[in-house]
């Protein structure tokens, strides 16, 4: 199905160069997503100027910007991000990697589904943070704790998305493949991958956002470095501007990671659609 949509896209977009002309209207359209952030920023500035909230609770945007520059120059942001991204890199690789494997097995094999389906669905119900108290006792505060929690947070959505996508490969396609006696490699490459990539990738994007949430929360509760900890420290010092800088950084990094995954997904689809 996605094969067709890509094809249709190509037919409609016969003159890709035409699309790149920057008319005023096109530029305006591209700026639309910035409208709400801009409104929020103006409202924030107004609220701060009118002192609707004490400055200790709602610092003006300029102070937050200054703090952001200080934190970037002082290296706190970079150090925090390095730690946080390292944690999410390892945790997500483990969680999503094993999630893909289990998800594919659950989708392809009824035996695996019969053995593991119930247990998996049961464990999936317990939120990642519900594991924290006991994991804290087992692993202490070391990096292992963060890896395990992030891996768990990204594992569940990946498994669900992968197994569902595999199960939803249309039955006629499978039958055709069987009739043609496609070898396993071609079966995977020509049928399973193209049919499942959109589903799996939307699962991976969910997984990454869950992982990011788990990371920030575990850093706020049980860590001594990382972006989440920087925010807690800002709260302790009663410097809410640091907390807000942390929120902005978390938002931007999360957005960047999500966009990155979406780009990869597009690339893969084009690759699969190539005749």
């Amino acid at each position: 199905m996605n094969v067709r949509s890509v094809a249709v896209d190509r037919v409609v977009d016969r003159f890709p160069a035409v699309r790149r002309i920057w008319t005023a209207r096109a530029v305006g359209h591209r700026l639309l997503p910035l409208a709400i952030p801009l409104i929020v920023l103006i409202a924030w500035q107004c609220a701060a100027s009118l002192r609707l909230l004490p400055v200790q609770i709602l610092p003006p945007p300029l102070l937050v910007a200054t703090t952001a520059i200080d934190l970037i120059r002082g290296g706190e942001i970079v150090d925090g991000l390095r730690v946080s991204l390292w944690r999410i890199g390892i945790g997500f690789a483990i969680g999503a990697g094993s999630g893909l494997v289990l998800g594919a097995l659950l989708g392809l094999s009824r035996t695996v589904e019969a053995y593991c389906g119930l247990t998996f669905r049961l464990l999936a119900q317990i939120p990642s943070l519900g594991w924290l108290p006991i994991l804290l006792l087992i692993f202490g505060l070391d990096e292992t704790l963060k890896f395990v929690l992030i891996a768990k947070a990204s594992f569940v959505p990946t498994v669900i998305a992968t197994s569902e996508s595999v199960k939803q490969i249309p039955a006629p396609f499978r039958e055709v493949a069987r009739v043609l006696q496609l070898p396993a490699r071609s079966y995977l490459r020509r049928l399973v991958l193209p049919a499942t990539i959109p589903g799996i990738f939307s699962g991976l994007r969910t997984a990454l956002s869950h992982a990011w949430i788990a990371l920030i929360v575990v850093e706020m509760l049980a860590a001594t470095e990382g972006v989440g900890y920087t925010m807690v420290w800002g709260r302790t010092l009663f410097q809410i501007d640091i907390v807000i800088v942390g929120m902005v950084v978390i938002g931007l990094i999360g957005l960047a990671m999500d966009t990155g995954l979406a780009r990869i997904e597009q690339r893969l689809q084009h690759w699969e659609a190539r005749p």
Partner: peptide, 19 residues
């Protein structure tokens, strides 16, 4: 090495041998 923790988490950290 200073590890910044709230009281309840200190207990867990001590019990797990992290501190």
């Amino acid at each position: 090495t200073v590890v910044d923790l709230k009281t309840a988490d200190q207990l867990a950290a001590l019990a797990a041998g992290s501190v």
